[in-house]
Design a protein around this nucleic acid. Structure first.
Lengths: 187, 187
DNA sequence: GTCTATATGTGGATAGAC
DNA sequence: GTCTATCCACATATAGAC
C-alpha cells in the first residue's frame, strides 16, 4: 500500500466504514459512499477497481483498528485490567451498538452469507481477537481452559451486541457488560 | 389467516425460509424462491403482494416455530432440564449454525439495518424467548437476577452462533454449549 | 387462479473527454 | 488524475391473456 492518494482514498474508506456499519454492505451503494466522501461517482473507480475492493479496504480498516487497540492495551496494566478494558469498550459503545450493532459482527454475518474471499478476511478479525483474549486468560493462570474462556467472553459480547441491536435498546449492553466485568474480577 | 391456499403458499414460505437462511433476505430473489418452490415467478404475487409480505410470513414462521418448541418444553421436566434442552438444541444444530448462522439472529441483524416494520417483528422473537428463559430461571429460585441470567444465556448462544458462522467451524458451538450446559447444572 | 411477457427502477461498472 | 454520461444486468412488480 503506497498510499499515494491519502486524501480522497481515506475519505472514501471512512465514508464506507460509517455507511456500511449503518446500512450494511449490500444496501450501501457506491453512489452513497461517493456522495458522503464528496467524490464524483465515476472517480471512485480510480481508487477501487470494484465494490469488493472497497470491502477489502473496509475489513483491513477494522482489522487495523483492533490491532492498534490491542497494542495499546498490551502497553499497560495486567491481564485482568486488559480484559476489563476490552469489556468496558463495549459498554462505552452502548448507544452505537444498539443502533447499528457491532461493526465487525454485523459485517461478518452479512459477508458470510454472500460468500467469497471477503468473508474469510472478516472472520480473521475474530480469530486474532480470540488469540489475544486467550493470552490474557493464560496470563491469569488459566492454562487449561484459556481458549474456552476467550470464546465465552467474545460470544457474550457479540451476542449482546446482536440482541441490543435487534431490540434497539442499549440497556441490554449495560446489563451483560456489568455481569462480565464482575465475572472477570472473580477469575 | 384463512389459509385457503395451503399447498403453494406453504411451499413458497418453506422455500423462502431455507433460502433466506442460506443467502440472506436481500440476496434471495423472488425468482429464487419461486424456482425452489416450483411456482412460476408471476404467480408469486397472487400469494404475496410484495417481497416484504414474504418477509412477514417468514418471521411469523420462525416465531411460530419457537412458540411450538416452548410449548413442548413446558409440557415436561423441570426448569433446569428445560434450559438444558434449549442449549442442547443449539448444540444439535452445530453443522447448520456453522454454515448459515442462527436463522433468527442473522435475520434480525439484516432486517434491522434495512429498517422498517419487519425489523421490530423479528426482534419480538428475542423478546419472547427472553421472557420464557426468565421464567425458567425464576423457577430455579433466581428471582432477583432471572432477567440477567436469561440475557446472558441468550447472548452466549447467539454470540457463539455468529462466531461459528463467521469462522465456519462447528467446534466453537460444541465448546460454548458444553460450558453453558455445565453452568446450568450449577444453578 | 395461473402463467408469460414486460415495464420500471436501480446499481455496478465503463467509455472517453478533459 | 478527474469527472460526465451512459451501458448493461438484474430484481421487483405489473399487465393482461388464458
Amino acid at each position: 500500500m503506497l498510499n499515494r492518494h491519502p486524501d480522497k482514498r481515506s475519505r472514501l474508506v471512512d465514508a464506507a466504514v460509517r455507511l456500511v456499519h449503518e446500512q450494511g454492505f449490500a444496501r450501501t451503494t457506491l453512489a452513497d459512499i461517493a456522495g458522503a466522501a464528496g467524490v464524483p461517482l465515476g472517480n471512485v473507480y480510480y481508487y477501487f477497481k470494484t465494490k469488493e475492493a472497497i470491502g477489502e479496504a473496509l475489513v483491513a480498516h477494522h482489522a487495523g483498528h483492533y490491532a492498534t487497540l490491542r497494542g495499546q492495551w498490551n502497553q499497560s496494566g495486567d491481564a485482568r485490567s486488559r480484559l476489563a478494558a476490552f469489556v468496558q469498550m463495549t459498554a462505552d459503545n452502548r448507544a452505537v451498538l444498539a443502533r447499528s450493532g457491532c461493526p465487525v459482527g454485523t459485517l461478518c454475518a452479512e459477508l458470510h452469507k454472500a460468500g467469497g474471499p471477503l468473508a474469510e478476511q472478516t472472520g480473521a478479525i475474530f480469530t486474532e481477537l480470540l488469540g489475544w483474549l486467550e493470552e490474557q486468560f493464560r496470563a491469569l493462570g488459566r492454562d487449561t481452559d484459556a481458549a474456552d474462556l476467550a470464546l465465552h467472553l467474545l460470544s457474550a459480547l457479540q451476542g449482546v451486541s446482536l440482541i441490543a441491536h435487534s431490540l434497539d435498546d442499549p440497556e441490554y449492553v449495560d446489563r451483560e457488560t456489568a455481569r462480565l466485568t464482575g465475572w472477570i474480577q472473580t477469575l
